[in-house]
């Protein structure tokens, strides 16, 4: 039990994919102007990471080394398409607002990274926990950035009005450049003042 918890904590925080490894930045920048989109994107990535990790780990002894990346891509892409179909069928509004980004989860480096670094060498359930952890760490970053961007950009959180009518939205927060600033500030805070890591 403790080992599983450790795997989760390491992949979610200690080795967080975004602020430690700077992976998955593209989508972290793209969808973070609304909390709701970030949450759905995060859940989609968790789902894909968990199941692709599990599947790749399950097949790890049979996957020929030379074509392992092809196989990983196939597995990852399949799960992403499943996420896309589920969103289209049951959450059409969200699917529409996320647009092409759901399909682009396929190219999210975190997933391939975890497949190579963890799932290919560890047991299925451990790999699943690792995937959930990495996805959780990713979602956390998305939500923190989206919190600031949506609050200052629209004056709302999850679409609920927080700041009221007097608030003038900062249009820079809605546009992509603000995500660069926010992400950089976040990484600086976590890796700087907040971390007393000794190297």
């Amino acid at each position: 039990m403790n080992k599983k918890k450790e795997i989760f904590m390491i992949s979610a925080f200690t080795e967080n994919s975004v602020w430690r490894q700077i992976l998955g930045i593209c989508s972290a920048l793209a969808v973070t102007n609304l909390m709701q989109n970030s949450l759905v994107m995060g859940l989609g990535v968790i789902f894909t990471l968990a199941l692709s990790g599990f599947t790749i780990s399950l097949l790890r002894k049979y996957i020929p080394r030379r074509i392992r990346m092809m196989v990983q891509t196939l597995i990852i892409a399949s799960y992403v398409i499943i996420v896309d179909l589920i969103l289209k069928a049951y959450f059409p509004e969200i699917s529409k607002s996320l647009g092409p980004y759901v399909a682009l989860i396929i190219t999210n480096c975190i997933i391939m990274g975890r497949a190579e670094a963890f799932a290919g060498k560890n047991k299925p359930f451990d790999s699943m926990i690792d995937g959930i952890g990495a996805g959780f760490g990713y979602m956390l970053v998305l939500l923190i950035i989206a919190f600031v961007r949506e609050l200052f950009g629209f004056g709302t959180l999850f679409g609920y009005e927080i700041l009221g009518d007097w608030w003038t939205g900062w249009s820079i927060m809605i546009m992509a450049p603000s995500a660069f600033f926010m992400l950089a500030i976040l990484i600086w805070i976590i890796e700087g003042p907040l971390t007393t890591r000794k190297k």
Binding site: I63, P64, I67, V71, I75, S78, I82
Partner: peptide, 13 residues
């Protein structure tokens, strides 16, 4: 292996 796994996943999709 690739053919088999492709068939399986395409089937699921």
């Amino acid at each position: 292996f690739m053919i088999l796994i492709t068939v399986v996943f395409i089937g699921v999709l």
